[in-house]
């Protein structure tokens, strides 16, 4: 059904390409690449459908709703592009697979539970930090912002620490 997948790029080559894309983004737009901003906009949109009054009154999400069409924005178009580019890369290189990917010890159901729990932590954390690995870690550090490096130190320290507990979920 599938041909053999093409290998991934050498990480240093991938890093140079990603760095050039990031540089082009700065030169064209005046800011870097991001991702987590779109989750706040999706949350504001869903909230405005399910709980319109509470969402409009909310101190964090209300601003997105009041401005109208919370999804319409640069970050949404960029993330649509990320999905499109990821799809092109995975299909052309035969790496696209409809599957649940996780460690060999986890049942698919348990893997989806860890994915959801991890997602909650990341969604909350990106709101608190005002950005994620893309917006702060990658783009912030590329401007040599102190904020970017503080983010990266906390991100890697917590990642290694939690992996000591979560190791059996992945190996």
């Amino acid at each position: 059904m599938h041909g053999a997948p093409h290998p991934y790029w050498n990480p240093l080559i991938a890093g140079v390409i990603l760095g050039l894309v990031l540089l082009a983004t700065f030169l064209l737009t005046g800011h870097g690449l991001g991702a987590s901003g779109v989750t706040a906009r999706v949350a504001a949109t869903l909230g405005s459908w399910i709980l319109p009054e509470a969402t409009s009154a909310n101190a964090y999400l209300g601003g997105y709703v009041k401005a109208g069409a919370p999804l319409a924005g640069w970050i949404t178009w960029e993330v649509l592009g990320v999905i499109l580019g990821g799809l092109m890369g995975s299909v052309v290189n035969r790496r696209f697979r409809l599957k649940v990917e996780g460690g060999p010890r986890l049942t698919p159901g348990r893997r989806l539970a860890t994915a959801f729990a991890g997602g909650i932590l990341v969604g909350f954390g990106a709101s608190l930090a005002r950005g994620c690995t893309s917006g702060l870690g990658l783009s912030g550090s590329a401007t040599l912002a102190v904020a970017g490096f503080v983010f990266l130190i906390a991100f890697f320290a917590a990642g290694f620490l939690v992996m000591r507990l979560a190791r059996r979920a992945w190996t």
């Binding site: 991890g118 932590l121 990106a126 709101s127 930090a129 130190i153 991100f155 939690v162």
Partner: peptide, 12 residues
């Protein structure tokens, strides 16, 4: 927030 993202990344 960075620590929560690192934790959520290792778990999720």
């Amino acid at each position: 927030g960075g620590a929560l993202i690192g934790a959520g990344f290792a778990l999720g």
